[in-house]
Amino acid sequence: MTRTQRTTLEQGEPRLEDAAARFLHGFVALLPLWIGAIPVGIAYAVAARAAGLGPVQTQLMSLTVFSAAAQVSAVSLLAGGTGWPLLVGTAIALNAQALLLGLATARQTRPALPARLPAAWFLTDGAYAVTAAGRRFTLAGLLGAGVSMYLAWNGGTALGLAAGHAIPSSRRLGIDFVAPLTFLAVLVPLVRTRAAVCAAVVAGVAALLLVRLTPGGVAVLGAGLAGSVAGACWLRRDARDRVGSGAGAKAEPGGSA
């Protein structure tokens, strides 16, 4: 897309073919994460069958819950005979960071209400990360990445149902390491200012402490909040110092996507 095209788009109504191009761009951008999602989908399906779920139930969970962390933990809890309140609670706790991702997405794209419903359905860490890594953060791009992950996750589940026992364990190969590397690829270009470094350091230390105490999503949510507040405090202190020394109190640009 050329610069002039983008300018006219920002002024006028977004065109359909442009949204389609962004959707496709998001879809393709998420493809590297397929090599992580498909093996985990297979492993989930195998574990679900072993825990006593039928094939329809196993696939239905991937189609509706669409969260690797929640599903894998639910299956291991089911195998231990846990009741439904704890299963639902764990699903919430493991996805608590989705609140922040949704908030950040809506603030950046300002979507109309009907557009938020499907966008929220497909919102995952991976889709958010690859969209944030792109040149522009758009809702169409996020949807494309989300649908891409949805296909990989459900395809992996179906593969696991069909031939799970015949496929070697992905945990031994360490394929799951692709996910944090993807997050890192997005993170590094965002950390450009001291305030952003402060936010990252505080979030990292907080996450390290919190993962020992709480389920994954709650730890990430808590650490995300702590880091964001720390970054804002740094900005405010910086601005105050500059006013005090007589220089212009121009706020340091933050590390937003």
Partner: peptide, 8 residues
């Protein structure tokens, strides 16, 4: 700072 903090 939400993206930076959450990704970290």
């Amino acid at each position: 700072f939400v993206p930076v903090a959450t990704l970290t």
